[in-house]
């Protein structure tokens, strides 16, 4: 074997590496930004393929939660003796946000597996594949929210006012929570393909102990205040519910819980990602 000629002196190499290291996070984010055309395209093409050849197409994301809400509010309204016109938008608001979280988490846990053809060919930051799932579902969430807004405008027009601007924040907030969460799940999911099944169970359990379809008064009546007061899901939903259903601004506590969730999941995603990102290709 011919030993290789002219290597650079070691000092040059260390300089090269030292220049790289501190800006790792910045480089990563820049990579996500540079690939924006690609992941936006992926998200839009997911939507196109979801509605291709269906008669109602994009309308399904509005029809489906509406139909489900009608059904549920009829049943639950009787059980919990709630006023249907006011209970229905409560369920609807819980449903559209919860569906988003569920779809993004389950879809996100398979994001790397789904994008394996791309991952094996091109070196983009892996977080763009969970961003794709998040973006797709954010668009569905926005559409589904239209039905909620319309419903509330008809049934409770007195709630309309400035606080509604705050409700718009749900989109960036829930996106910032779901993206890192989906990213963490994607890393676990690529290693253990059981994750989507396990998530089904976990989310059902979470749904059961959270004021998503059930009203807080049900939990409080059972002396389960903690399930409302310390539940990030409750606070997240309040971002929409306070303005739309009560005509009030969300409280600082609501925002604090959301911010906390964002920070926790982001830190977790960075920790997992920095260790596992390079090895993902071996698991595909």
């Amino acid at each position: 074997m011919r030993s290789n000629t002219h290597f650079l002196p070691d000092s040059v190499n260390t300089v090269y590496q030292a220049r790289r290291a501190p800006s790792a996070a910045g480089t990563y984010l820049a990579g996500i930004w540079n690939a924006r055309h690609f992941w936006i395209h992926l998200a839009l093409s997911d939507l196109r393929s979801r509605w291709r050849r269906s008669f109602f197409g994009v309308l399904w994301s509005i029809i489906q939660p509406l139909g489900m809400t009608l059904l549920l509010s009829l049943v639950f309204g009787r059980i919990f003796k709630s006023n249907i016109t006011e209970y229905a938008p409560y369920i609807l608001s819980g449903m559209v946000v919860w569906d988003f979280v569920l779809a993004t988490s389950v879809g996100g846990s398979l994001a790397f597996v789904q994008g394996d053809a791309y991952i094996k060919q091109c070196r983009h930051p892996l977080a763009i594949y969970t961003l794709r799932t998040t973006l797709t579902n954010l668009i569905v969430l926005s559409l589904a929210s239209l039905s909620l807004v319309a419903w509330v405008l008809v049934v409770m027009p007195q709630n309309f006012g400035w606080p509604w601007l705050a409700a718009l924040l749900i989109i960036p907030i829930v996106g910032m929570i779901a993206w890192p969460l989906a990213t963490v799940l994607a890393y676990v999911g690529v290693r253990f393909r059981d994750v989507p099944h396990a998530l089904g169970l976990v989310f059902q359990a979470l749904w059961f102990v959270s004021p998503i379809y059930f009203e807080p008064k049900v939990f409080r009546g059972g002396n389960l205040h903690a399930l409302v007061d310390y539940n990030p899901i409750y606070h997240l939903l309040q971002i929409v519910r306070a303005p739309l259903l009560h005509g009030r601004w969300p409280t600082a506590e609501n925002y604090a819980y959301c911010l906390g969730s964002i920070v926790v999941f982001s830190v977790l995603a960075c920790l997992v990602g920095s260790r596992a990102e390079k090895r993902v290709i071996f698991y595909l």
């Binding site: 540079n34 690939a35 055309h37 690609f38 395209h41 093409s45 393929s49 291709r52 053809a117 791309y118 094996k120 060919q121 091109c122 983009h124």
Partner: peptide, 28 residues
């Protein structure tokens, strides 16, 4: 490496030209 990866079967050839370009990190 593998040329046939990343085509979208339901999209037209023209659309796929754009998609493949985006995958390579090029602008629309």
């Amino acid at each position: 490496f593998d040329l046939s990866l990343g085509f979208e079967p339901d999209a037209t050839g023209r659309e796929n030209i754009l998609y493949r370009g985006l995958l390579l990190g090029l602008s629309p």
